[in-house]
Amino acid sequence: MNIGNLIMVVVGTGAMALFGIVAGLFYMGIDRVLVARMQARIGPPLRQPFIDMAKLMTKQNIVPANAIPWLFNAAPLVALASSISIMLYIPLGSFAPIFRGYGDLILIVYLLVIPALAMVVGGLASGSPYATIGAQREMVTMISYELPLATTIIAFAWKYAQLGLDNPFSLATVAATPIWSQVGPLGFVGCLLLLVTMILVTPGELGKIPFDTPEAETELAGGLLVEYSGRNLALFYLSLGVKAIVLTAVVVALFFPYNLSSYLAMSALPARLVDGAFFLVKIFVIMFFSVSLIRIAMARFRITQVVDVYWKYLGALSLVGLILVMVDSFIR
């Protein structure tokens, strides 16, 4: 790696960290306002997550007596850093991924495991019974949503491999060749099922209602985060914000990679800006349907119900989606 590449990696990672954190906190604010309005409350101001972060930074950073201090402190750092690193593999609007050609769709599925595992390790390192139960539930939730998530990604990988494109597993390739224009009616239905699957995998990945069993405030008092406070808790919240942007950006790249500039005659810079703004709107829409709307309408699942939903119902749904996409390719 030469100096130019190193500077590119440093600047790119810094820029993605800034974008992921600011956008993640901003969308958390939008989510809280929308949920409040749907419950006929005024709700907090949009900047509330930023205020919360600033407040957490002024709070004591307690390390429990039973904890393994270095693991307890390292887990939030790894969660945030790994979430930021995934941003480098995802196209944002008309901007290609910074690490284009150096990581693909399959890699993103693996990298998504790291922030969740960091939370599990942090919970187990807390030395608290509540956190241990929370960590156990996070493990089970993670195992559960991996099946429908992996099936959806396999469907895309298989379809794009069939098309004979260069680097078919690359998210940049997928974004440049929208799936909807590559399938017939059966494949279209299959893709709709895969979209529903991804919409429902997102709240599980983010630990949002009804899949918030690992935290379960009213039952486990915060579960795997119960012993975290101050700056360590702030880092976990930031990592969840970045992960929310990562997941919705993946859904956008897979299912809605369209840009406005391709329909409007615009010069390069305004086109980038318009596409960037349109990308933020798409993220907001995905976030609304996959997080805000679901969490306002439902109560928390028990951990066995989480497994049922992901392994039995969504697993079957994504498998039908995959089969329809394959059958569609064979009969076209």
Binding site: Y102, A157, N167
Partner: peptide, 13 residues
């Protein structure tokens, strides 16, 4: 079909 560079990911991490 795809690609990945572990050194680059480690540097970013």
């Amino acid at each position: 079909f795809g690609s990945w560079n572990p050194a680059l990911w480690l540097a970013a991490l």
